[in-house]
Nucleic acid binder design. Structure first.
Lengths: 186, 186, 186, 186
DNA sequence: TATGAATGAGATTTCATTCAT
DNA sequence: AATGAATGAAATCTCATTCAT
């Protein structure tokens, strides 16, 4: 039930995954405990549904990454794609953060998260592997870039580190492009 | 009391911050509830003490970053420093992860974490700012590199993504060096 | 919920306010802790509700005090009213005693008690002020009589001082009437 | 140990008997838990010692009540004695209040208190019995007057009901004298 | 389908008391 | 005599989950 999922996102945003109570979600959704358990078997179950949505969106995004060339156009395309990532983070930020919180000490979400990361990175690797210098392991470099991408978005968009969205995107594009083609930023 | 702090690290590692019960910590430390509350006013309070330790260690690490030159020696020095970061992550991993878990939805730890990130990044920026191309904002580039560093360590050392520690360090050094001097990796 | 309030009265009676445990109340009411906290936020909260009831009953009683004349009929009417006070004390004794116990060192109940005393005494003063000799401050004399009334009921009805209810009422009526009209007792 | 007894009075004053912790008393007395238990077996025990002091002082006071005559001099002597009672209440107020609090729901203190009340009232009865009209039971009238005396002092000296000490004494003397000799107040 | 009162297991926290020094 | 760290029993309170309506 959409109402409950949306309330879930909202409550996870303000209270975090662990501190979120079924009662909070139910109250925000203006429905009852009984109804909650009609649709979900518990908080974890509702979260799984939200996580699924994020996972799908992320995978679609990974697949939309263009083959990036060494020139300015390639860099611009990369920047645009990073912008899409930021858009996605804007939309699903609370879920992503809750996920990070939930997966620590929770077997299932940890496994799900690792799977998702692996799939995303695999697709990402695929797109950039042609561009990398021979001696570099593309999968690992890709993982590092994904790490930077994810965490920088968290820092800037969730943690209110004082950096503008545009500058964040430009910087990420610069560092990524440099590591792919060895050129200097911008 | 050291015994309780150590037990805290251990319990946060296995159960995560939220699922950790005072009872777990107390049992592991082979002491009593009364003793726990003699030294700390609650779980949060104990965690604060641990966080302080990590913060101090991280700050010391940031200050140990050498001025990195464009040549191979510079790259090697950078790799060595990243290795120290990984060592620190090994030692304090449970606390860092617990922190990540705790700071979401907990104002205080969120603020503390942002402060720590800011200080670390500031020192980091200081060390690399001379090396960056003019048009790049050093603070933001530094933040991106710190994001990569932190998150990659988490992926590899905590999440059991199947990457060797040596390769992680080498890759991180490569990407960082490339973004500083525009050279290709290695 | 009535069941819990009644159990509260009963437990306060046998154990006193401070020694009363939520668990006692819950067990006597044959319900659960959860239910208790559904209706009251703690023991204090339940007590507040009971205190409200006593306060209302006392105020109604004060307002029922007839204008007492100097003759035998006036004295009889006064005695009857004192009888009603004793009835009320019988009914709410446990709460009144618990209040006495609770208000010492508890700001809120102290304040509530003083308010109630003031209102009761004010109404009482109103009823007797016409009867007092000029030089006497009616409010203070009224307060003294209320003090006697309250404490004597406590001595006789709660403390099991060996005095019959009838004699207590007769004596109180005598002293009060004497102080109002300067006649000797009875 | 005097230091502990004094600290006890002080703590009972601010926190009441039940809320008083051994820790509070020990801290205020600038000594240790161990020392407390060296001199008293528990909080109750310390309180018993204080109660003993109050009991002795009260009994001495009762015995100092002069034989009160029907004239102005008798009334003045009565007023002076009531002043002494107020002095005693000033000094031992916290203990008296704590006693009231403690005796509800505590067998031992209730019994002690009733004994003390009985002894005090007996002596009081002795002193006034000659003055009362034949039909009045002196013991009961005395009890009523003692009730008034005690409670009025509590109202005025502890509860901060807005009445001056002088007026309280005058009013009590008036009501008492009136009930003894049937004269009007003052 | 929907409700929400009732439940009770389990976590947190307090504080009187002991005992080795 | 004096200390105060350590204890643990006992109380409070929360919240996920159920179930009769």
């Amino acid at each position: 039930m959409r109402k409950l999922l949306d309330a879930g996102v909202s409550v996870f945003e303000t209270r975090g995954y662990h501190a979120a109570r079924v009662d909070d979600i139910v109250k925000l959704a203006r429905t009852s405990h009984g109804t909650f358990y009609l649709y979900f078997s518990n908080k974890e179950d509702l979260f799984r549904a939200l996580a699924q949505e994020v996972g799908d969106a992320l995978q679609a995004l990974a697949e939309s990454l263009p083959l990036v060339g060494p020139d300015g156009a390639g860099r611009a395309a990369l920047a645009e794609w990073i912008g899409s990532f930021a858009d996605l983070y804007d939309e699903y930020g609370p879920v992503v953060r809750a996920w990070t919180e939930a997966e620590i000490g929770t077997h299932e979400f940890g496994r799900l998260g690792t799977e998702m990361l692996t799939r995303f990175t695999l697709t990402f690797t695929d797109r950039i592997s042609g561009s990398l210098p021979d001696r570099v392991n593309p999968a690992i470099a890709a993982l590092a870039l994904v790490a930077m991408l994810e965490r920088m978005n968290y820092y800037v968009l969730s943690k209110q580190v004082n950096v503008s969205r545009a500058k964040m995107i430009d910087t990420l594009a610069g560092v990524m492009h440099a590591s792919l083609y060895g050129t200097t930023h911008a």
